[in-house]
Amino acid sequence: MSITIKDVAKFANVAPSTVSRVIADNPRISEKTKKRVREAMKELGYHPNFIARSLARQSTKVIGLVMPGSADIIFQNPFFSNVLRGLSESAHEKNYALQMTTGKTEDEIFEGVVQMVQGRRVDGLVLLNSHVDDKIMEYLRKQNVPFVVIGKPFKYVEEITHVDNDNFQATREVTEYLLQLNHDRIAFIGGSLDLVVTIERLLGYEKALQLAGIELNNQYVIHEEFLREGGREAVSELLKLSDPPTALVVADDLMALGVLNMLAELNVSVPEDISIVSFNNVLIAEMGNPPLTSVDINIFSLGYEAAKNLILHINNTQEPIKRVIVPHKLIIRSSCMKNIENDLVSLE
């Protein structure tokens, strides 16, 4: 015979309604009571039927994840597996499941979102990046669907809950770090200019150069995909310049790995010939040859906070709009060194 809520209530010496509230993680129930009820559930082998409960509440207990491309491409970049860990752990704590939508084109991704919303397959959505022209964001606002963005919205910043790093400040800091190492020919390798994160990081790079009195060289700014091939292509182009850079700010570790691969093929030494700072601080940064100096943007926390704040909004439509800034930290390794060439010039 299957165990019921009444059996759990009797075992824990509480009312059946209290057991239901514990299952729903109602904040009005004390932690002491929650612990007693959960121990009773475990002892009796009781497992709540979340599907039945969801149908009764007209809720799915599912969060939709809007991936920025096809699965075979995006999962080449460790950023997404790390952010998914954070999303998954946060959702699991509140008994929510995750459902992803991907697509090879923007239209396919948009159609997947429409199907999620119109089919009532999810209670809310997390967008894993932010575009300048973001029709998914526009659609969700019009449909009044709860959603959270990982990244800074280009429009309606004060009206959309988003979880982000201070990308402007982070890139300004890493550019200033290279300037302190006596580099004045610093290039920027970023992603698409349709991504708000690219714009924020580019502006931080430009601001650091401006404050140092260095004129921006447009030839030093390259935009490619956040993939290893993008890094290879970008550094190949930069090294063809008559006055190539001595340092690089690369907006993604996977791109930076492509940069390292290409430089090795061309017999260009890092950091002796060129210094590199990248972003994300995923495992490939630490395992690079040499290990990469990289900005730790706490990817897990980005995902965790996104799911946490979406669930808060799902459960309370009056939940205030938030801008959650996850702290960053520059992790210094072996890919940068002082530019001795400039020291020699100054001595002359």
Rank of each mutant, 00 (worst) to 15 (best):
R232D: 04
P68E: 06
P320T: 11
H131Y: 14
V148M: 00
M67E: 08
C336F: 03
Y46R: 13
K207Q: 14
D194Y: 09
H47G: 02
F147S: 07
G119H: 06
G86Y: 09
I136A: 10
G213H: 11
P271C: 10
N49I: 09
V282K: 07
E43D: 15
E111S: 15
N218P: 01
S17N: 13
A12G: 12
P245H: 07
E200A: 07
I325A: 00
S54E: 03
V345M: 04
G204N: 10
S130I: 03
E237G: 15
T171V: 08
L238N: 10
D194W: 13
L312T: 07
A234P: 05
P78Q: 01
V149C: 05
M67W: 09
V62T: 15
E43M: 14
N13M: 12
N261F: 08
A40Y: 03
V66A: 14
N165S: 10
A12T: 02
E138V: 04
G231T: 05
E106A: 14
I199C: 07
E158H: 12
P153H: 12
M137P: 00
D166F: 11
I74E: 02
N77W: 12
Y96M: 03
L178V: 05
K32I: 04
L347Y: 09
K322S: 02
I274G: 11
N182Y: 13
E200C: 00
